[in-house]
Design a binder for these strands. Structure first.
Lengths: 244, 244
DNA sequence: CGACCCCTTGATTAGCCTCAACAACCGTGG
DNA sequence: CCACGGTTGTTGAGGCTAATCAAGGGGTCG
């Protein structure tokens, strides 16, 4: 995904003009690499840049005053991370590398420039963060109002739906580089209970698992159990202003 | 709050130019009133407009396949609602009036125009929706990783913090026009358990309650128990592009 | 080889849900 | 003005889901 993985992500949703591609390309000039497990920033760290994910998995999370951890979101290639820090000038959550990752740092100033010079791209990025908010809302509903097994099913479905946007629609098997504790911190469960739920899904032949390799056997049933609605396949770009 | 309650909300965060105020004023020309309990739109309804809340309380929520309801957010005067529908062309949640409300409908096209002509305002609105995403994330952590009593405490703190932005910082007593079932649907609890928790808070003299009138007796302790961090007092606008 | 992390499984506990009944309140119509 | 039904709040008893506690196994890395 060289030469603009943000561009290729955005192009999934709306055709881009040559000029827009060039503008986006300029955002991704630098590149930074982090090792698996690296902590990129902590909550409340001052932050003056965003990152575009080029490769690898990231996770953002908070530690609560009671010592517990809540994972907000996993970030995949093509995602923009650290956006919410814009609103506060400091990180609202911790950001860590789940695997080795390549990131393109992107100054907040450059985003401001994009708002001035490329309103259509700004609106598109705005739309993208809206769809992330919706999926956060879906997770809220999942955690707030569904049982443990459904939460796991739903999380698996989300991974699949999101990875497909960048990697192709026929994907049924993928590597999830997470511990069961990570699953728990994302779904509001303990690692022990996550383990039992996953084994249940395997036993009922909804999924197969070999180490961190997961294959979906019955996608329909998995989505039904997780009460999952796919928010990633399409987003609406018809409202966007015209390209410049 | 006549003549632009969006303008007065935004002015809380950043000074606005005359030109910007006029632009915003044009967004709020019309006004629509809904009765308490009215359903403004359902999930999946096609939606071509946003609303700026002028007065009253709104609630957005989803019904899950298992019959349960999850409340995503309560909306107060100065809020912009229905924004996430932008990303999908249809409503991602149901929107209902908790009290009688006045709304200013706002065509999506007009927002597109704002992106083209007032990049600074667009960026400011963008920032505002980011801060909403952060508070959604806070609620996720609250529901995912804290006990029932903490969730209620945190929700009360959030109401107070948000109402203060528009109504003044010294406010300690306010009317919450919600049923205990609403509290439950927002926090992932049953109405019965909400009742017990609220009574616990009253008994421990953290709050006082007479009908729907609530007074905070020990704000510090309430925030501590709810693991609440105030995201509403300030947002960072230093990254915004210059005014036109 | 040992240390550590992660997964797995069992036994017990506890927090919250469910069910049920009743009281208080509210708006409505007689 | 009161009677009424419906909604909301309150309280108790019992049950179930998921947490906690605990112990062992497998894999990996130094």
């Amino acid at each position: 995904m060289g030469g603009g993985c943000l561009a290729s992500r955005l192009a999934h949703y709306a055709p881009l003009s040559e000029r827009e591609r060039r503008s986006l390309g300029r955002l991704e000039e630098r590149e930074r690499r982090f090792r698996k497990g690296a902590l990129i920033h902590r909550e409340n760290d001052p932050v003056r840049e965003l990152y575009i994910v080029r490769s690898g998995w990231l996770v953002s999370f908070v530690y609560l005053g009671n010592g517990a951890r809540q994972i907000m979101r996993f970030h995949f290639p093509g995602d923009i991370v650290g956006v919410s820090s814009l609103a506060f000038g400091e990180a609202t959550d911790c950001l860590a590398a789940v695997t080795d990752v390549d990131l393109c740092p992107l100054d907040q100033d450059k985003l401001a420039l994009l708002f001035e010079e490329e309103p259509r791209l700004a609106a598109l990025i705005f739309t993208l963060t809206l769809s992330e908010r919706v999926s956060l809302a879906d997770r809220l509903a999942s955690i707030g109002r569904t049982a443990a097994r459904a939460r796991i099913a739903s999380l698996l479905c989300e991974f699949m739906a999101r990875l497909r946007v960048m990697e192709g629609a026929d994907k049924l098997e993928f590597t999830i580089p997470l511990t069961q504790e990570d699953f728990g911190d994302a779904t509001g469960l303990t690692a022990v209970h996550v383990n039992r739920m996953i084994r249940g899904l395997v036993e009922d032949r909804l999924i197969e698992r070999h180490g961190s390799r997961v294959r979906i056997l019955d996608e329909r049933r998995l989505a039904a159990e997780g009460l999952f609605t796919d928010r990633y396949a399409n987003i609406d770009t018809s409202w966007l202003p015209a390209a410049r």
